[in-house]
Design a protein around this nucleic acid. Structure first.
Lengths: 140, 140
DNA sequence: AATATATAAGTGTATATACACCTATAGAGA
DNA sequence: TCTCTATAGGTGTATATACACTTATATATT
């Protein structure tokens, strides 16, 4: 049974491994900002949102399970970087950046730029394909 | 400051999102086997290893932090799928499949094949590029 | 042999992830 | 209005991830 099944070609394994390694690289560069990659992404997505965005809508935008987002939000809320308040529909909660959150993001952006440049450089010609492919996967 | 920085192009975000979605797809297909994608990978890598492999060597092979592997091994060990015994160098621990582990793997392989086929179909022409790219990232 | 260094592995802690299940409220239909 | 259903969100539980730190043992140096 072994031989024809090349587990080393597993799409899931290869993708997860790549994600692990890239996350470690970003986390290392972002370390001085005290933000992890996931948290940076969260703040960055919230920055343009004027009066806040509902949790489910945010989860959709991030391609993230809603309950995962709930836990991730708890971390940045505890750190005072985002605030949650009820929307007009009292079932909803609107997430928005606090002043501290905005400041933390601004301080982290140069570090992110650095990590991002490094990633783009490493991928070289394949950078465009990389973006297209990861987005195609997300378009399921 | 916003505008030139396209956070939606973040390599880390795009990669993590893709990994989340693909993992969910694999986990769903693998569900009848009771194995999660990570556990399947673990068993699959161990299958050819004759008399066992040391934890650090296995972590290296998987591109995974050693301490992460320790926790992941605890899960499959508790389930009776792998066993750990000291190597010749008493500092090392050799990991190997149990009979139950081998059986669980064999039962899961057809499900994995299904998930893998689906992934390959979805990526179409880009499948080769996908593998090359994720491996290139791992080659850092 | 005694000490210093390097290597293998585990633990404490914290974040990230998601399924199954639960609660609360809005909106539709009788 | 009352009930049914759909939607928004949280909680319990479990796995996945990794850094900082610790323990134990092998190997090298003196």
């Amino acid at each position: 049974m072994a031989g024809r099944d090349k587990f080393g070609d597993c799409a899931c394994f290869n993708l997860r491994r790549a994600a692990r390694l890239v996350t470690q690289a970003y986390d290392q560069v972002l370390a001085p900002s005290k933000l992890k990659a996931t948290q940076f992404t969260l703040l960055a997505v919230l920055a343009p949102a004027g009066k806040g965005i509902a949790i489910s809508a945010l989860a959709e935008k991030l391609g993230m399970d809603r309950t995962t987002l709930t836990r991730n939000l708890a971390v940045v809320e505890r750190a005072g970087l985002v605030s949650l308040r009820p929307g007009e529909d009292p079932r909803t909660k609107l997430v928005s950046l606090t002043a501290n959150g905005r400041k933390a993001l601004e301080e982290a952006v140069p570090l992110w730029r650095e990590a991002q440049s490094e990633a783009i450089d490493r991928l070289g010609d394949e950078w465009g394909d990389f973006l297209k492919m990861t987005r195609r996967i997300a378009a399921i």
